[in-house]
Amino acid sequence: METGVPLAAYLGLGLFMFVVGVVGVIIRRNPIVIFMCIELMLNSVNLTFLAFAKYGPATANADPYQHAMAGQMAVIFVMAVAAAEVAVGLGIIMMIFRSRNTIDVDEVNLLRG
């Protein structure tokens, strides 16, 4: 099937979102925003998975159905892991705030030697 949208368009969007997430993780100091940037990266990977699932295998001898399904399964598991990660991560942020009264990542340096 041909829809006029090249695969590279989806890949480019995914790459752009991933890079924005990486930059955000580096330059922001607020752990909640850093966390959101990580979610952004996970989602860009999800988009890439689904794009590859839809556009099919690069090699001709792979089964398109299994290929498409593998992409979707990866997305489902990423979502499950992200949900667990958010629950625990936000709990950790709340704990840090409760015990130190700040959540600036540059201030949380107890482990520094």
Binding site: T3, P6, G56
Partner: peptide, 29 residues
């Protein structure tokens, strides 16, 4: 951050995305 992000974007775009520029056929049933 911007330096590293730009490097990552350029590298991935040229090395990973570029081979797929011609693909627009959807194979999934």
């Amino acid at each position: 951050g911007f330096l590293f992000g730009g490097a990552l974007f350029g590298l991935t775009a040229t090395q990973v995305v570029q081979p797929f520029l011609q693909t627009s056929q959807q194979f999934a049933p």
